[in-house]
């Protein structure tokens, strides 16, 4: 379980100006839930994810995982970034093996595990390629495999499909859901796509424009496993999308006011 307890984040920009990125956020995420954080750009949704990751410490409040306050990054929470952040000097296999090796897994075992994961994300045959030789979608598959390789209990996904074309994005969404159905990790998924959030999640946390506050939490009660083609025709799905679009519209208007 992840608890975010009255968390606020203030950034000091150059000069003495303070920018309130997150304001008094409280949120609880159950184990095995797929939760999306949705909001306009600049609402601090990624910052919230980084706080859970332990990369950024909150100015106020505390975030806990399994009841323990988060003080830094750890292999129980694995990030997947929009920018892929693969190690360019390592091959696909080298990237995926990095985590297990760091955990002290023997080379031969890490090698075998990593090859299985690479196959699972659909990249069999690319083990010895370098990231630069792969397309964006393939890079993100490697990044996902690299994170899954050290068995984090929580996946922290920071707009992971934001840099991909629509077609690739859909395929990766499906693959992610398939993987998630299999081992039901807790997923915290940041996105600005309403459609993506509704399709993937159990719960969508809608945030307001800066300073980021939680505007509303929407439970998505759609049956699983979900098929995209069926969902698009499902009036319940359409209702969720329209309802959330309206909330976002409101917050965007707010943001335009000087």
């Amino acid at each position: 379980m992840i608890e975010i307890d009255h968390v606020s984040q203030i950034f000091r920009t150059s000069g003495r100006q303070a920018h309130l990125a997150l304001s008094d956020i409280s949120l609880t995420i159950e184990d095995g839930a797929f939760v999306s954080i949705l909001g306009p750009s600049g609402c601090g949704k990624s910052t919230l994810l980084y706080i859970v990751g332990g990369f950024v410490s909150p100015t106020e409040g505390v975030a806990r995982v399994k009841g323990r306050a988060i003080t830094g990054p750890g292999p129980d929470r694995g990030p997947v970034f929009q920018e892929f952040a693969l190690f360019p000097w390592k091959t696909v296999l080298g990237n995926v093996m990095y985590g297990p090796r760091q955990q002290g897994v023997k080379a031969a075992e890490a090698d075998a595990q990593s090859r299985r994961l690479i196959e699972m994300v659909g990249l069999k045959g690319f083990e010895n390629f370098y990231p630069k030789e792969l397309s964006g979608g393939m890079k993100q598959r490697v990044a996902l495999a690299r994170t899954l390789a050290y068995h984090p209990a929580v996946l922290l996904m920071d707009e992971p499909f934001g840099a991909l074309d629509a077609h690739t994005r859909t395929r990766l969404q499906n693959d992610l859901l398939n993987i998630w159905e299999r081992d039901r990790k807790t997923v915290l998924f940041v996105t600005h796509s309403v459609d993506e959030a509704v399709f993937l999640s159990d719960k969508v946390v809608v945030m307001t424009r800066a300073p980021g506050r939680i505007k509303q939490i929407v439970d998505i009660e759609l049956p699983r496993p979900r098929r995209r083609a069926e969902l698009l025709l499902d009036p319940r799905y359409q209702k969720y999308v329209v309802e959330i679009e309206r909330m976002i519209d409101d917050t965007s208007e707010d943001g335009l006011r000087p």
Binding site: G53, F55, P79, F87
Partner: peptide, 22 residues
């Protein structure tokens, strides 16, 4: 890139090894 360092830290790399590993 900051996120390269974060990725390594999340994978369990201790802070003092980040210099040589990343």
């Amino acid at each position: 890139e900051q996120k390269l360092i974060w990725s390594a830290m999340a994978a369990g790399t201790p802070r003092r090894q980040i210099l040589f590993k990343v």
